[in-house]
């Protein structure tokens, strides 16, 4: 792709008093691309996104939006960007409609656009409700509606579905998927949910402790292990000793001491599985339960960091 990236982040660092929150991150995002930043709590997602939004300033490195720096171009860039912060509480005693009207005035928009947004976000019934009386999911939809008011070329959503039930989450996804079809908007979305990243985004960036661990399409991320299957197993309690599993062997076993559950990757079921049974047998370990499943981003994360995405 030789067009100008919509967002370009070069070697950006950001530290707070004791935390090095972002440690040299590079990003290039093009028109119409939907990108997920996937990472556990404290990974630096919000810090990175807020630097792209111009809310925080990088200590080092450069950020260009449409080829322009924030400094001196604020007015222009604010026009084309739509954001939803991780945690914004709007004015309690304004109604949904009044809140949208207020924000639409910042972009000099007509009230037709406000009605469109109410329609898109399905807040018709709540049009006249005070913000203070909205449910969590309705507030998130309002926040998303506000971010969409100006039909932004760049949309930055920080955990838009955290805390929502699966239905409410899917409603937000469907709004975003419609947007994706029009391929006018570039999106960066942060999330803890790999399912969300898988559903919405063609490019996924896994970050942890301020660094990019791995990025690519879902296929690329999981490809190198396409044939791999995940085997999860539990053992008979009496015979359990975690050390036995750690002894060197052909298998790289990950043991989760909390759930007393082991997992490993297997390439060829036909050959590897009997090997694994033999391995257990030699150590006098008896299986209690065994399951196969497809590899997920969580497995990838675990492989990369030794931790789960949700801990």
């Amino acid at each position: 792709m030789d067009q100008v990236p919509v967002i370009e982040v070069k070697a950006v660092h950001k530290s707070f008093k004791t935390v090095h929150a972002v440690k040299g991150i590079d990003l290039r995002i093009f028109k119409g691309q939907f990108v997920a930043l996937l990472g556990p709590n404290g990974a630096g997602k919000t810090t990175l996104v807020e630097m792209i939004e111009g809310i925080q300033k990088p200590d080092q490195g450069e950020i260009h939006i449409m080829g322009k720096k924030w400094r001196g171009n604020e007015d222009e860039l604010h026009q084309i960007i739509g954001i939803s912060l991780q945690e914004t509480r709007y004015i309690d005693k304004l109604t949904v409609w009044e809140t949208l009207k207020l924000f639409s005035s910042f972009f000099n928009l007509e009230k037709d656009r406000v009605n469109e947004i109410i329609d898109i976000t399905g807040l018709e019934e709540k049009r006249k409700s005070y913000i203070v009386n909205l449910s969590g999911g309705q507030r998130q939809r309002l926040a998303m509606g506000i971010s969409l008011l100006n039909s932004p070329k760049i949309l930055l959503l920080d955990e838009p579905t955290t805390g929502l039930d699966p239905n409410a989450r899917r409603e937000i996804w469907s709004i975003l998927l419609k947007l994706k079809q029009q391929s006018e908007t570039s999106l960066i979305l942060t999330t803890h949910y790999m399912e969300e990243a898988e559903q919405l985004c063609n490019h996924i960036i896994i970050i942890d402790q301020g660094e990019i661990l791995k990025e690519g399409t879902l296929e690329q991320l999981l490809d190198e292990s396409q044939d791999k299957k995940i085997v999860e197993f539990t053992l008979e309690e009496s015979q359990f000793s975690a050390d036995l599993l750690m002894t060197p062997s052909a298998f790289h076993i990950h043991w989760d001491p909390v759930n007393k559950k082991g997992s490993l990757e297997i390439n060829q079921l036909e050959t590897d599985l009997p090997e694994f049974f033999k391995f257990l047998n030699q150590r006098n370990l008896q299986l209690k339960n065994l399951e196969f499943r497809k590899r997920t981003l969580d497995d990838l994360f675990t492989q990369l960091t030794g931790r789960h995405l949700h801990e």
């Binding site: 939004e53 111009g54 007015d75 604010h78 026009q79 914004t88 509480r89 709007y90 910042f106 972009f107």
Partner: peptide, 13 residues
């Protein structure tokens, strides 16, 4: 404290 101020100044307001 509600982060509303930063949300508002992230628009052309």
């Amino acid at each position: 404290s509600k982060k509303l101020l930063r949300r508002m100044v992230a628009t052309p307001m």
